[in-house]
């Protein structure tokens, strides 16, 4: 199972960012989400949601083995993580996020809440 991104459908509303942070951090703070949306305006006028594709590069890079595969998702063990951010540098597509108030890097754990609120099928679940 993974999340499929259809960027042509994205409207830049950031509902996915909101529900992500509420779900994982219990905060209203889209800057702390495991998703980002790059907006390319005024030209060409496109949105580009970006989030983890569960490639595992972060887990390989982690010096303290704090990132584990659980089901289909690589998940950060916040107790083990030292917040060294080596995984952030190791991520090939720049979707290990950081935030000054977050104790560890932030990544998608495939909770799928974002796909539930998205009303344009920009984020969908595929097996």
């Amino acid at each position: 199972m993974k999340i499929k991104v259809t960027k042509e459908n994205c409207t830049g509303c950031k509902l996915c960012l909101q529900i992500c942070t509420i779900t994982h951090k219990h905060e209203i703070n889209p800057k702390m989400a495991a998703i980002t949306i790059d907006a390319h305006f005024p030209e060409p006028g496109t949105f580009e949601p970006r989030l983890c594709v569960q490639c595992g590069a972060c887990a390989q890079a982690c010096p303290v083995d704090a990132i584990h595969l659980e089901g289909d998702a690589y998940v950060i063990d916040e107790d083990e993580c030292t917040n060294c951010e080596i995984c952030v540098d190791a991520c090939p597509i720049g979707v290990m996020f950081t935030h000054p108030d977050a104790p560890t890097p932030i990544k998608c754990d495939l909770c799928l809440k974002c796909t539930e609120v998205c009303n344009t099928s920009a984020l969908t679940v595929v097996e």
């Binding site: 409207t11 509303c13 509902l15 006028g45 496109t46 949105f47």
Partner: peptide
């Protein structure tokens, strides 16, 4: 139409970004 475009937190995306 170039893309549908929404305000923050809106799932109705009434904005029509055009060329």
């Amino acid at each position: 139409l170039v893309t549908h475009k929404a305000c923050f937190g809106c799932w109705m995306n009434c904005g029509k970004y055009s060329r």
